Amino acid sequence: MTAATLHLAQRVMVLYTGGTIGMQASASGLAPASGFEARMRDFLASQPHVHIPQWRFREMSPLIDSANMTPAYWLHLRTAIIEAVEQDGCDSVLVLHGTDTLAYSAAAMCFQLLGLKAPVLFTGSMLPAGVPDSDAWPNVSGALSALAQGQPYGVQLYFHDELLDPTHCAKVRSFGRNPFVALKRNGGGTKAQTLPSALTYQHPKEEANVGVLPLVPGIGADQLDAVLNSGIQALVLECFGSGTGPSDNPAFLASLQRAYDKGIVVVAITQCHEGGVELDVYEAGSRLRGVGVLSGGGMTREAAFGKLHALLGAGLPFDDVRRLVELDLCGELA
């Protein structure tokens, strides 16, 4: 990355979605709470040595625990980010988000905001702001400082002094200050030379219906059919190893073939933290390819899920979706 590719933030929009970072105690436990802007201003005012850009604040509605995040909310967030840049005159965006689904949302925004000329950072905290040993304020001030120092266009995840590519990371711990790690995935995709205009951020997106099914020993066609017949448009199939499944089960393969015939896009990813899918290495993988299953290469679950939502939400034809799944759009297959 060169200095010419970095964009120093002058005006940042902070979008507060809820999450642990701003939670306060309630009768039922910690819950999302309004009023975070005033708390944030008070803290930053007490840190005059920290170099941060000018910033504005928008509280999203509703504020949610990120366990309640949905693809419909993603579209709401997508609109807010675009409005911050194109209507409010901000050159960068910081999204405050709960950690449970932060990697999903950040990965989804990578595909929802293709072509947007602004850096977008996601951060949150493992403990609420104001409690002892909280990581909230270090993450907020650190993310703002990172934007002031210059970031490339696109979406990144900021946590505990580290910037991560959302399409290559996952939350792997429910404790401590470092819940997110970059997974060592293989690439496996050719870079898309051009993008359909429908995929760029200027074009509205619709909500899509995407399922995820992890394979386990003994899984059968009945379980697969239950997911495929639930109204989904696409399925992320979490396979074993380099992309293997129960290839000696004719009913299972027939179910996948029916999915293809019905226009359901099925993408294989690996359950492993390292590596990726290569469907032609084993017979158990090539048989999946033979009934229409696509290779997700080294995509994480979060990246594959977000990518399918963007492709289907753009209203692209079935054949175009299948072609683009295996092409690298924003580094997810690099």
Rank of each mutant, 00 (worst) to 15 (best):
R173W: 07
P48W: 07
D161P: 07
H49Q: 15
V212D: 03
L329V: 11
L327I: 04
S174Y: 05
C330F: 13
E283F: 03
K171A: 09
V93C: 02
L288H: 10
L288G: 08
E162A: 15
V155A: 08
G150I: 13
A103H: 12
H7T: 05
G296H: 01
F36M: 07
G243M: 02
E37I: 00
D133Y: 13
A103R: 03
N186K: 08
V267C: 01
G187M: 10
F252R: 06
P138E: 01
A234Y: 11
F252S: 07
A192W: 10
R289C: 02
L228C: 13
G292E: 01
G115Y: 13
A4S: 15
E283Y: 02
A143W: 01
N139P: 12
R323T: 12
A106S: 15
W74I: 08
G243W: 02
Q151K: 15
L96F: 10
A268G: 10
R289S: 14
V140E: 00
L15G: 11
G89S: 02
A192D: 02
Y282H: 09
I219F: 09
K191S: 09
H309C: 03
R56S: 14
Q10C: 04
A9V: 06
T123G: 08
A303V: 10
Q202V: 15
G331K: 14
L183C: 09
P317C: 08
Q271W: 00
A107K: 11
G98M: 02
N209A: 11
L157C: 08
A129D: 14
L30K: 07
L288D: 07
H97A: 00
D133C: 11
S174M: 07
L63E: 01
L75N: 14
A143N: 00
C90V: 03
R301D: 00
A170T: 05
F122Y: 15
V281S: 00
P166L: 00
A108E: 04
K307L: 03
M60D: 00
A148T: 13
A136C: 06
S197Q: 13
A146Q: 13
T5N: 09
D165C: 09
V265Y: 04
A103E: 03
R322H: 05
I219Q: 07
G285L: 03
L237F: 15
M23H: 06
Q10V: 09
S255W: 12
Y153M: 06
P132S: 14
E207G: 14
T5H: 12
L327A: 15
K171S: 12
A268S: 11
V325L: 04
G142I: 03
A27T: 12
D42Q: 14
I264P: 06
G154H: 09
L121Y: 14
T194Y: 08
S61W: 00
G18T: 04
G115V: 14
R287P: 07
D328W: 08
Y73M: 11
A80W: 09
V210W: 06
A118C: 13
V267Y: 01
T190Y: 06
